[in-house]
Write a protein that binds this DNA or RNA. Structure first.
Lengths: 350, 350
DNA sequence: AATCATCTTCAAAGCGCTTTGGATGACCGA
DNA sequence: TCGGTCATCCAAAGCGCTTTGAAGATGATT
């Protein structure tokens, strides 16, 4: 069923039917009702492509997700972010177009999407420091919203970020307050902006207390379970092993926990762990009491909000680009405790 | 830059330029080269919507991913599957359109996508037994490929599945061979087809050895870490706890492991665990030696292959729908071992 | 009764592409 | 010389929608 057929059935012109459906005022209210009824009755939906051609808008947003070529690694937070953004798009009648791209080929993909008119705007995932994609998108003239920020880029752009610096500073402070001094940082790849900022927060906190920053207690890589495990194993083998770990993601923290328990330690008693929890739907941090003490911020909510920001930007190009800085909350769970006094065996206790 | 502009620059008609670019024979080879050069030079890309309008094809595939409304739960294998399918689409010039939908609203979404002509076909995720979406898609006339199968539906359709039944039968056999008799099944939701089949394989194996099937050793729910943990905790508290666990996913197995280690047992010595490993990029099963003994099958590869199957189906509607049954391999890791001979008190037993 | 403003409605022109159904020569054999 | 066959190229129609510019109908105004 297309417009032409529908209008023939109704004995009206395409113009009138189109206007009736799109809520234009210059159509008799009775006629509009008649049209509306007929449209639902015949299950009419305007053809996306035709509508797009006529209006010049695609009513679609692209997500270009970079894939680490080396490990064919897709960021696990992606699914939940998409789910959140998808809600916003659905509410606003937009489609979501996804391209999974080897990092490096991205520029071509953006140009393509723009030139072919597939989308009206794009979400940029996984920004790096001085990320070249941002000036690129400005140059191309494709509206965008960044999930995160890019240190070093000072032109205004639309973004949503978690305050990673303050989150990790607070987490570090929390561990310092518990008496820990040898605090390890198991971080994401530090050319990624978020990881860079987290490290900044960690160092700020240490510096503020005069605790020396020891690069031997810092690791940085893709945030897999195995990476968490290996990092903890290595650092536990040191003459002066860390008494606490600050970890960049839940998955990574699971690896750290494995190492800790495999070594016969009790999490939260012998060794403390704080992680960042993106609140992924399939990786909830325990039940009532969180397993891990964690800085927490919903990546799904981030998806919802950033999508809104971008749609706003598209509908009003003149307004300055919006941005949102989310504060993560620190949830105290069972994975942290005061620095274990290496005094007599714990027989006295318990 | 559009066709009209490009053809003006070249001093040719739109027809000729179009044909040159699309590889039609009736254009002089010299002219074609001239066109090709000009096209790349001016960064020309045909407008997707216009092309779609003219050809009647969208050059896009939809993925409708159902979301458990209750828990806002998105299946974690989704990201990797998408990455695989995305590769195939990119290679074939297709876009990927994703809709995240509350389960229940799906029918409307499919009708919409079809009526609006947004896509040429769709991938159906998470099929259930007698899944009503399959007859629905047949009725609508929207080509589709199913990731999995739907028991109870006997009309031919295009699918790709892992042989879940044989995989879980083999895994169970493996545990039986090691001497285990009380083998727990920590399964996914059993109205999902894959979980149903896995349970079938598990029961087949037990039955074949005359081992009684004990529903007290079976759990079924969404495959989260917490679910794995709780299931194991509960079952370990039984008077005759399982000596081995067959678990439906890595994430779930992480929870089972947590419960086991928290109870002071050693994984692979005191208690065995076999899981299914979808080879998710961010959840690799250990390094050289897998942590978990697992039935293994790459969900990313599944994405690649199913996408190909669907594109084939779309390009040749007359051919019978293709399907692929992947066999999972059983990787022996460190989480399994022979039945521990009960040393002290339990020695009288059995 | 003629004029005008106000509602409604419509025909037709695009949006950028593919594709049908010719043109236009060049070349060839008769 | 002429019709016929190819090889190239083109004008124009059409895909399904929005939107511009106008026209008819109605009622109010003079």
């Amino acid at each position: 069923m297309n417009l032409k057929e529908l209008s023939t059935i109704l004995g009206l012109s395409q113009t009138t039917v189109s206007r009736a459906l799109n809520g234009y005022p210059e159509v008799n209210e009775a006629t509009r009702q008649r049209v509306l009824v007929a449209a639902t009755q015949h299950n009419y939906r305007p053809n996306t492509r035709a509508k797009g051609l006529a209006t010049g808008r695609a009513l679609a947003i692209g997500h270009v997700i970079p894939m680490a070529t080396k490990h064919e690694m897709v960021n696990p937070i992606f699914a939940d972010f998409i789910a959140g953004a998808g809600e916003t798009y659905a509410r606003n009648g937009y489609d979501m177009v996804i391209s999974v791209v080897d990092d490096g080929d991205e520029a071509q993909v953006y140009r393509n999407l723009k030139a072919r008119g597939t989308i009206d705007g794009v979400i940029l995932h996984g920004p790096r420091m001085n990320d070249p994609r941002i000036p690129l998108l400005d140059e191309i003239g494709l509206p965008y919203g960044v999930h995160g920020r890019a240190s070093g880029i000072n032109t205004p752009y639309c973004w949503l970020d978690v305050n990673n610096r303050s989150a990790f500073r607070r987490a570090t402070d929390f561990l310092l307050d518990l008496g820990h001094r040898r605090i390890a940082l198991v971080n994401g790849l530090e050319f990624m902006d978020f990881a860079h900022r987290r490290r900044g927060g960690y160092e700020d906190a240490l510096r503020a207390r005069g605790v020396p920053i020891d690069t031997a207690l810092m690791r940085s890589d893709e945030m897999t379970e195995v990476f968490g495990y290996r990092s903890a194993v290595e650092m536990m083998a040191r003459p002066e092993p860390p008494t606490a770990y600050l970890v960049a993601s839940m998955i990574c923290a699971l690896g750290v926990r494995r190492a800790i328990e495999e070594a016969g330690h009790v999490l939260g008693r012998d060794i403390s762990v704080v992680t960042h929890d993106d609140m992924l739907s399939y990786l909830q941090n325990g039940g009532d009491v969180p397993i891990f003490t964690a800085t927490r911020s919903s990546v799904r909510e981030a998806g919802r909000l950033l999508a809104e920001l971008l749609l706003d930007r598209i509908s009003d190009t003149t307004a300055p680009p919006g941005h949102i800085l989310l504060e993560a909350e620190l949830m105290v769970g069972r994975s942290t405790g005061p620095l274990a006094t290496p005094a007599l065996p714990n027989s006295a206790k318990d």
